[in-house]
Simulated assay, not measured.
Amino acid sequence: MAMESRRKVALITGATGGIGKATAIALAKEGDYDLALHYSSASQETRDALAAAIQKTNSTTKVAFFQADMADYTAVRNLHSAVTSQFGPVDILFNNAGTNSGYSAVTSLADIPIEIFDQTHRINTTSAILLTQLCLPHMESQQYGRIIFCSSVAGFTGGVVGPHYAASKAAQHGFVHWLAKNVARKGVTVNAVAPALIGDTVMMGRADDEAVQKRAELLPVGRLGRPEEIADTVVWMVKNAYVTNKVIGVDGGMYPY
């Protein structure tokens, strides 16, 4: 059946981080979406500040926060249940939650316990696939849906974080390509955005830190990316029904693909 004329529900995981926050505000600016915002451990102050920023952008946007540990599949299922109970079915899923599991700038495979590979993959990839699995039947039935993963240039190049992180992001790409072809004629698009060196995010740290600024020298554009630049790409993917089966790099020219 065709999609009913109701406000669309967007679920953003990791919504209180830099990219998640910027995407929530960008979607609020569009005016057509209510926002179910997942967080893992963000403080009440952080959540209140984001809610205020969204309401300042668009006072008609409905906003609610939902806590879940993305390493726990039962918690992920409960997250989906809580969101749909309060908002109704999810129309747009931005699988944005991610982690490096506390390991970065890894230079030896021996430095990463296999349990860290498992934990990182579970949070970055498998829980996102589970949420997709839970949201997809509604999208297919109404012949409209948007599924977007926040990947990384590390999924193409290996990156600078570590093998556990790169492997989890590369796995997202394979899933995007399989699912996109499977649902393309059902009104559902499936894509990923692959950032590199985005300032003011948990993964990178503060954009004004000297060490972070040195990393900007790796980029042809000579600066770190901004969370808002990733958010713009996500909104484009949401609005454009002819873009699917893509992993779009937003990386300052780091990797030509």
Rank of each mutant, 00 (worst) to 15 (best):
G14K: 10
A15Y: 04
G18K: 00
G18M: 13
I19E: 08
K21S: 15
A22I: 03
T23W: 10
A26E: 14
E30S: 15
G31E: 04
D32F: 07
Y33S: 08
Y33C: 11
Y33N: 13
Y33G: 07
D34K: 00
L35C: 12
A36K: 09
H38A: 02
H38W: 01
Y39L: 00
Y39A: 00
Q44R: 13
Q44H: 11
Q44K: 14
D48H: 05
D48Y: 00
I54W: 06
Q55P: 05
T57G: 06
N58R: 04
S59M: 02
T60K: 15
T61Q: 10
T61A: 05
V63N: 06
V63D: 07
F66A: 10
Q67P: 12
A68F: 05
A68I: 13
M70H: 04
A75P: 06
L79Y: 05
L79C: 08
L79W: 02
S81R: 14
A82H: 08
V83R: 11
Q86F: 05
G88T: 06
P89L: 04
P89Q: 13
V90Y: 00
I92S: 09
L93Y: 05
T99A: 02
S101W: 00
Y103E: 14
A105G: 14
T107I: 13
L109A: 12
P113D: 04
I116G: 05
Q119E: 13
T120Y: 05
H121Q: 15
H121M: 15
I123E: 06
T125V: 09
T125Q: 12
T126C: 02
S127L: 03
I129E: 03
L134M: 04
C135K: 01
